[in-house]
Design a protein around this nucleic acid. Structure first.
Lengths: 406, 406
DNA sequence: CCGACTTTGTTCTTTGTCAGAACATTCGTG
DNA sequence: CACGAATGTTCTGACAAAGAACAAAGTCGG
């Protein structure tokens, strides 16, 4: 039950049913590809004539294409329909604290080529660098295929409407508009988004075909900070100030270690990668000491994880404590949003077999109901490049999204 | 950007634009009443002919009615349209721990008559009692007006689809189906809903005409427990298990007092009315002692509030501590959902002038951004009967909700 | 090999709504 | 009292949805 906003509604016209049904059809093909017109007609409960009509338009638009006919037990052999993905390209860019990743993918997120370079914080240097690299990538691998846009993923708050980066502390960016100069430099539409939200979008829109895709879930990223992309009713929750999902700064204790946010005992000071590495090194965690200590120590979270996997007791213990606090944090999410699942991303997921029992036990101990205790917690490995997949989703998803009416 | 759920979509038909535009029209009348056809045509950017056609259908349905013509500076005098509310009745029922309230209202929530009786937990006795009382109310005040349904508000989790009360600890109900027997007894549709959600629905659907109605907010109820109704994008968030919004059991400290939920240091053990009264009495709070102590002490939360308003230091202090913790709890809501406003309901709001500065200060100290710190916190007085208004909204809102497509 | 049957896909006709023009109504004004 | 201006109604054309009829392309059994 949704309330109509009488200040910004979209009135239906004579072509509205067409728009809606085209979009439903497109999504049915996406999720059941390959699929025949007759099967689509059955699923949509419309006549085959209508399907012919609608598919013709989508094929003309270049959204679908016809494949071969396939065998059928009897009767005329159906002609299969596919979503056009392989010759529609997307540039996904993931800007992180130390490195920036650029990936050329097709429309469904398959990687074609990837590059990395040291992150450049200065916009005046970054944009030309991106410009040459993107042009090279497209010249080398683009062939005759068209690039449909750029998805830029940033570790910080992004304004959904303008695409401005409101605040990205790791890059020192505040109210930075990278969208406009990049669009001018490359002549392609640029979509900018916060990393956890982009990861959530990838999960929702680029799931493996056939897999049940959740429409109510939370994607929690564990890296230098803790972020979350919240999806409710198949829609991302941004909140009034684009700052929804800051579960990293929910306090677990009133008197815990100080946090950069000004609070104390935030989830982040117990479970961020910085905190885990500090714990491994046997040092008290504080944001200041962590920044100073870690680079000099030469120990990274990946190192801690691999030592834990190798069985080193100190590393295992450090991760166990992280898991316990993470479980406490996730149970806050379960209590407040009751999602159908929680996806956890970040380097520590490589050691998921060690973490999971502890996380689950912690959640079970704190859950209000049995069903809440059983909320699936799903790891996503860093090797799947979730942020870059998110970049692709930023460009491709809008073309599959539900039209907005009323 | 919403994802289409390909397992449960609603296909558009030839009548879809009509359905959508009828609903937009109805809502425009609701919010701008009285309003003429010509004005509606301008607001919807359609021809006046279309408006005549659509309003004729709504008038035939009994959703609108024509009022008098009014003066205009020049030209033909416009004929005003109104939403039919005064002769469409709703029975709102609020079942609470000690008392049950029944209110007969019109469609927009105006009270016509009200009754109270001691709550009966036994369903076999409760349903006949409600049956006779509702029949009497309708016979006395109903006149020739039609009652459109019953909105039943319950302190506990309710399954959105079946209307079953899954768990209402204050009433000792577990998987209780009150909807079916009540519908059979009275021959009217019955809508059952959890109290904080019902309050949120009332806020969204029965706001004063002209007031800006929020579509992203959280309604927090402070009573024997802490509950919350979460509204995102104009839709209530129920979560997988109808247990979203349990902010009352978010822990503020890891080692605080035990809570009934099995956790420790939950928001509820610091800010519920039981906790506040215990604090006033100078007793350590625990759920068991509170239940035992409070009835014998004879002190209620209303008493503590009125003593605080009279300036009694102990009462003022008890409420200040509650306010401090409540501020901490609300800042969790702000961080995780970033709503455009938070509405606080419950007896303690009578002392809002004392509470507000403390709550605001606590939120400001914990907020991540200036805008988050400025999130409006709005009190709703118990004297406005928010739960009963919620009961009315349960019946009337569905008739104004946006149709679901794609 | 051929006709009966089955299923897919296309084309054509009917139906009903949207959209906009034309028209009727009702007021103020010179 | 004609005229302009605004509101409200009616009429007509255009066009998409719905569904029937038809064409296409296969299997199967005799």
């Amino acid at each position: 039950m949704r309330k109509i906003n009488t200040r910004s509604f979209v009135r239906a016209t004579r072509w509205t049913p067409r728009e809606i049904n085209l979009q439903i059809l497109l999504n049915l093909v996406r999720e059941h590809e390959p699929i025949s017109r007759a099967e689509l007609a059955r699923r949509m409960k419309i006549g085959r004539g209508m399907v012919t009509y609608l598919t013709a338009e989508l094929i003309a638009q270049g959204a679908l294409y016809e494949g071969d006919t396939v065998d059928s037990p009897r009767g005329r052999r159906p002609q299969m329909l596919y979503v056009r993905t392989h010759d529609r390209l997307v540039i996904a860019i993931d800007i992180r604290f130390s490195s920036t990743y650029i990936m050329l993918t097709d429309f469904s997120g398959n990687s074609i080529a990837m590059e990395t370079f040291d992150t450049i914080e200065d916009l005046n240097a970054l944009v030309p660098e991106l410009q040459t690299r993107v042009r090279n990538l497209l010249a080398l691998h683009g062939a005759s295929r068209k690039c449909e846009g750029i998805g830029l993923v940033v570790p910080g708050m992004v304004d959904a409407v303008s695409g401005q980066v409101l605040n990205a502390p790791q890059l020192g960016w505040r109210n930075v508009d990278i969208k406009t100069p990049l669009e001018e430099a490359l002549g392609l539409p640029v979509h900018v988004e916060n990393a956890p939200i982009a990861c959530a979008l990838a999960k929702m829109w680029l799931g493996r075909p056939g897999a049940t895709v959740p429409t109510d879930f939370v994607y929690v990223t564990v890296s230098d900070g803790i972020g979350a992309g919240v999806v409710v009713n198949g829609q991302v929750v941004r909140g009034q100030t684009n700052s929804a999902g800051e579960f990293g700064h929910v306090p677990l204790t009133a008197d815990g270690p100080d946090c950069l946010c000004g609070g104390h005992g935030c989830l982040e000071v117990y479970t961020s990668n910085l905190a885990t590495v500090c714990r491994y090194l046997g040092k008290e965690f504080s944001p200041a000491t962590a920044r100073a200590l870690l680079p000099s120590s030469g120990v990274t979270i990946a190192e801690v994880v691999s030592r834990a996997l190798a069985g080193e007791a100190r590393a295992v213990d450090a991760l166990q404590v992280t898991a316990r606090h993470l479980g406490a944090g996730l149970s806050v999410i379960i209590k407040t949003l009751s999602p159908t699942q929680i996806v956890v991303g970040g380097e520590i997921t490589e050691a998921w077999e060690q973490l999971e029992p502890t996380i689950r036990a912690e959640i079970a101990a704190r859950a209000l109901t049995d069903m809440a205790a059983a909320t699936p917690i799903v790891p996503e490995l860093a090797s799947a490049y979730p942020r870059l997949r998110g970049g692709t989703a930023l460009v491709s998803a809008p073309l599959f999204a539900a039209p907005k009416f009323a």
